[in-house]
Amino acid sequence: MVSSITTGYATNPYAAAAAGTTATKATAADTASTSAAKTSGSSVNVTLSAEAQAALAAQTDSRTIDTVVASARTALDKLLSDAKATSALKDGKATISLAGLDRRSLYAIASNKGGKFPIEEQVVATLQMKATRDASLSAPASAMRVTGDHAGLYKAALANLEVAGPEEKAMGQWAKDKAALTEGLQQATDKPGVAPSGIDGDPVAAYLKDTGGVVASPRTRDIKAVASDVRSVLDKQYAAATGDGLATDPDDGTIDFSKFDNRSLAAVALNKGAQFSEHEVAQAAAEVKTRNRDSISSSYKSAKGSDNSAFGKNLITQYTAMSDEERQAAGWTPALYDKMVALQNLSDKLASLFNPDGSVNTGGTSLLDYL
């Protein structure tokens, strides 16, 4: 009897247009099925996980980067046309969803391979890659919060990293992330129940700080409901600290907001629902300021050694990833966003004027005409 492997690939017109791998995936599944048939006389159905499916697709992806770029450009044009949008971003919010595109296509867009993708599309692609990564870490993170064991979370992060295409794996950032995650897994394995520490650029530590270890608030949830959750958690913390069961705000001490996600912090800093004391509001605002400074510093460091436009792109991506409340608490205004986009577009234009050898290439126009 013929064994089979059920891969569970979904049919998506945008994914097919961008990836161009439908036939490749089918061939991979057929090959696996034939191989299994030669080694077994019984019928075996194996359902691959989403990570395994993605890894299989990556291994059988024989497209050239030019083909990836062309397919991604076609898919984006169709998405924009269907959405009746002229840009992938409007007022700092995505106008299209890139959830149907494969990892390699998303990276090609995010890194502007071939110079085919404007900054708005780069940002949306970057955020989609992050969303996919976050989704793969959600379940193991929830388990970690209950058991205290970080090993499963680091394994999931490494699995997600390995799905990357050859272009992404060739970059220094991919190697740095793998080294950090490998070290994290080693620490988590050696000391179960203890959070890995002292790892430079640890993606898991950054993920946990972003999503929060106490209250994690979806950006679609009503902000006042988020505030109520935080109020409840804080009261329990106070009661536990005093030992007398009384939920008293320790005005003479510092509240530990480090394990709250950014939106929960914003709810306190903005005093949504008027549920927080002046001390709590001040402490939350201070934590927001610290995180904002650290995030900008991290964006700057990660951009060093890259092209000159990387830092601006990081800032625009950070703004787009925020909820309205997070932007307000951090002081990121629409006017600031417009200025960042204008400066980024100018930077891209200036960069395109120069050839790799440093000579000017204006395409027959003057510099003033080009700008």
Rank of each mutant, 00 (worst) to 15 (best):
352 S>E: 12
128 Q>A: 02
241 A>E: 07
73 R>G: 06
197 S>Q: 10
345 N>K: 14
241 A>K: 10
4 S>R: 09
181 L>T: 03
253 G>S: 11
331 G>P: 00
135 A>I: 10
172 G>T: 09
189 T>C: 09
196 P>R: 04
112 N>Q: 08
64 T>I: 09
120 E>D: 15
299 S>W: 08
259 K>V: 01
298 S>A: 14
268 V>G: 01
15 A>R: 09
260 F>G: 00
338 D>H: 10
255 I>M: 06
35 S>M: 11
263 R>D: 03
312 G>Y: 03
243 G>H: 05
284 A>I: 04
321 A>S: 15
359 S>W: 10
274 A>G: 06
75 A>E: 01
233 V>E: 12
131 A>L: 11
292 N>C: 11
4 S>D: 14
135 A>R: 10
303 A>R: 03
229 D>L: 14
281 V>P: 02
293 R>A: 15
310 A>F: 04
4 S>H: 14
223 I>Y: 01
207 Y>A: 03
261 D>W: 00
203 P>Y: 02
22 T>G: 15
44 V>S: 13
143 A>Y: 00
275 Q>I: 03
171 M>T: 15
279 H>I: 12
226 V>P: 00
357 D>K: 05
151 A>G: 08
27 T>D: 13
37 A>S: 11
255 I>L: 10
180 A>I: 01
216 A>V: 09
289 K>E: 13
203 P>H: 07
333 T>P: 06
19 A>K: 00
227 A>S: 11
180 A>R: 00
291 R>N: 13
169 K>E: 09
325 E>P: 02
211 T>Q: 13
13 P>K: 15
114 G>Y: 05
78 K>H: 15
189 T>V: 06
297 S>V: 15
20 G>I: 02
25 K>A: 10
240 A>D: 09
148 G>R: 02
126 T>K: 05
142 S>A: 15
17 A>C: 13
8 G>S: 08
331 G>S: 08
22 T>W: 04
351 A>P: 01
173 Q>E: 04
194 V>F: 04
79 L>Q: 05
4 S>C: 10
88 A>F: 02
312 G>V: 00
14 Y>P: 00
327 R>Y: 03
326 E>H: 02
79 L>K: 01
121 E>M: 04
69 V>Q: 01
227 A>F: 03
242 T>N: 14
246 L>P: 07
245 G>L: 14
353 L>I: 14
134 D>C: 07
55 A>W: 04
22 T>E: 13
113 K>A: 15
180 A>N: 02
131 A>R: 10
95 T>F: 06
74 T>E: 13
336 L>T: 14
70 A>L: 10
215 V>A: 06
95 T>L: 07
274 A>I: 06
50 A>N: 13
295 S>L: 13
134 D>W: 01
232 S>Q: 13
64 T>S: 15
55 A>H: 09
273 G>V: 03
70 A>C: 07
48 L>C: 09
351 A>K: 11
109 I>H: 02
283 Q>M: 12
346 L>N: 12
330 A>I: 06
49 S>A: 07
111 S>W: 02
275 Q>M: 05
301 K>W: 05
148 G>P: 08
225 A>S: 15
43 S>L: 13
3 S>H: 07
295 S>H: 08
250 P>S: 12
187 Q>G: 07
289 K>Y: 05
212 G>F: 03
87 S>M: 11
91 D>A: 12
36 A>N: 12
302 S>F: 02
29 A>H: 08
230 V>F: 04
23 A>F: 12
96 I>E: 00
303 A>L: 05
